[in-house]
Design a protein around this nucleic acid. Structure first.
Lengths: 143, 143
DNA sequence: TTGCGAACGATAATCATTCTCATTTGCGTG
DNA sequence: CACGCAAATGAGAATGATTATCGTTCGCAA
């Protein structure tokens, strides 16, 4: 399983090219769930692929628009992407090691809807990150 | 009232220089509550001040570290700052006109604490923005 | 006032990201 | 299966935000 699926790309209106297939594969079968353009570029390089950084940026943006990936703007100035598996969630990020955990809280979601309504806003989307130290978990920076 | 207060700068360990006083004044007495470095720079220029953009960035960062200002990273790639008045709040941003409203929700705050605890994180801070259209309010882009 | 280190202004440098453009490639046709 | 062309790519230039460098100036204590 976990083969690359050209049909998947076609179904969202993108022709299946080698860079696109490789990048999608990295997100589907790679170790890291959250990756920046530079991260993906390095993985491609490490895998011996000759893919330009510009292409990585282009493809990530296309995948985002196609709904295959979700883009996040965590602190640190660079965008990170993750596979869009349909389930919305927010993130808690370790400032020490960069480790990211996901969570979903119904109460928070509904409060947001309520607040937007009260302020007469039509919600487009929202962005919630908690930053801290994962002092007691599998934080990679402690071994 | 609303005079510039050199003592305020001294009290946070910064010597009172003209650029710092002017910038603090802009935040205390200006129209806009949320401003980017470029915004502040333009206001200084419009006011006939000869202040370098580099200085604006330096001062904003110093003010942030001193706790006078709070930095936010909204969508759009540039940092915006606002006066730190001690009261934490989150933001809802209009994607049409950039208008920002602030809100505070106790339920959301406490849920976040709970979630961080469950995931064994020590919260440093958090960042919550709702993005949408302020279709029914004083959105500047509709007159 | 004098002196020195901190702060400044101009500008070069850096970082992430996007754009340009000549070359290559995916893919439907004949 | 070769052909042709538009779409996609790669290399590198360009951009926008922010930071670093450096010679000059300024705040402030002696």
């Amino acid at each position: 399983m976990n083969e690359m699926q050209p049909e998947h790309l076609k179904s969202v209106g993108l022709k299946s090219t080698l860079p696109r297939l490789k990048i999608l594969d990295i997100f589907k079968n790679g170790q890291e769930r959250h990756m920046s353009a530079e991260d993906v570029y390095q993985l491609l390089r490490d895998g011996g692929e000759n893919v330009g950084l510009a292409t990585v940026y282009r493809v990530l943006t296309q995948f985002e628009q196609a709904g295959l990936l979700v883009r996040h703007n965590f602190e640190g100035g660079k965008s990170v992407f993750e596979l869009n598996e349909g389930t919305h969630h927010d993130h808690i990020v370790c400032l020490q090691c960069g480790h990211v955990e996901e969570f979903y809280d119904n109460a928070i979601e509904s409060r947001q809807k309520k607040i937007a309504a009260e302020l007469h806003f039509t919600i487009h989307d929202h962005s919630l990150q908690i930053y801290g130290d994962c002092t007691k978990t599998k934080c990679p920076h402690r071994h």
